[in-house]
Design a protein around this nucleic acid. Sequence first.
DNA 1: CGGCCTGCTGGTACTAAGTATCGTTCATAT
DNA 2: ATATGAACGATACTTAGTACCAGCAGGCCG
Lengths: 224, 224
Amino acid sequence: MPRSPVSRRLAEAAVALFGERGYDETTVDDIAARAGVSRSTFFRHYRSKEDVIFPDHDALLAKVDARLRASTADTAIVAVCDAVRIVLAHYVEDAEVSLRRYRLVGQVPALRDREIVSVARYQRLFREFAGDWLAGSPDAPLRAELMASSVVAAHNQVLRGWLRANGRHDPFAPLDRALEYVITTFRHLEKPRDAAEQVVVATFARSASPDAVMDAIRTHLEER
Amino acid sequence: MPRSPVSRRLAEAAVALFGERGYDETTVDDIAARAGVSRSTFFRHYRSKEDVIFPDHDALLAKVDARLRASTADTAIVAVCDAVRIVLAHYVEDAEVSLRRYRLVGQVPALRDREIVSVARYQRLFREFAGDWLAGSPDAPLRAELMASSVVAAHNQVLRGWLRANGRHDPFAPLDRALEYVITTFRHLEKPRDAAEQVVVATFARSASPDAVMDAIRTHLEER
DNA sequence: CGGCCTGCTGGTACTAAGTATCGTTCATAT
DNA sequence: ATATGAACGATACTTAGTACCAGCAGGCCG
């Protein structure tokens, strides 16, 4: 949210003080003082003490929402992947800030909680999108929930890996891999259930016993 | 956490006041006064104002943890399902309280956030368990994360459905259905990747064109 | 019986986050 | 030059949460 110079100064002062004294040991007065402004001004720029270290979630949420809305039914998967990439890109752009925040969040429970809540907002967005997208299909709410949570989980897993590695490697390749993982999983559920439309490939080990073949068939039937 | 009579009185007073005046309009002093104790006593029984309406998450987490630890590698899936059922059962047992809390949480953002954080603690437990369980297999961290988030998402979806229906129908059948959904999905990823071990069944519509067959084969190959 | 320890309680004082409000300054437009 | 509106400083206030101390019951032992 460092839009205005004052906001930026406040954020820098906060990060510096949090690093020096710790989060709980730093008061809003301290932050404002170092930034050379009053306490009132701090709360004009940030709703709370926690807000000052978190990225502009509102703007980022809006971006994600816009990307999701700009999609038709047949490009939904692409939209989801793009949206997730947008989020990751936002962290990667300010790698310095992201890393500092990561280390801080790992130490302060209150900030950890705050981050979890923020992530839930993204998940909600994805869930609503998936809900509209799957509307009409069986078990739409459940699948929407699973899809949203999986997408977010994949993103988080990749992001945490990148942060733990101090932002060295490129995280977009792992993200694509993880997303493909998720998509594969869900395509498995999205398959047409009408037997007349079904196209299935089967191979058997030459040594397979008839029982093994029957088990495989039964398993596949149950999986539908 | 209504262990002692004082705790119970405090909880009842809090719920009553939250219902009458709203959450933000009720102070801890009000709650303590109605319960006939001092403010100090309130904070001795509940760490915070929010704590007073949430169930005994610590005890429940311990139960879940115990159930997960009491499992070997081949009963892991059963343990996870049992653990989730334990959580749902905890809500169903006090249906009255759960429903009141649900309605309240839906109105107060602070409580909503608190609940999200609580859910994350369960998810973390499942993730660690799945991480140990899958240790050694490829992409273990990613799969553990996906598995944990999916299990929790399934539970939440079923729980919310039950709450929205005012706790009328039995939620355990839907839960089992949802969990089977998740298990099916993940079994799909757990399949042995060694081609020599592969057993696959294939059927084609008689009218299928060669291109359709080729597409199906390519898709299945990519899905591995 | 009397002293002692322990656990629970009430009360007071304190810190700090967040809110509300008022007056001031300053820049820009008319 | 004056009006308007936005940003800031300052003050006062509410409330959550913490720290600390003093009283008060009941149990236990000599």
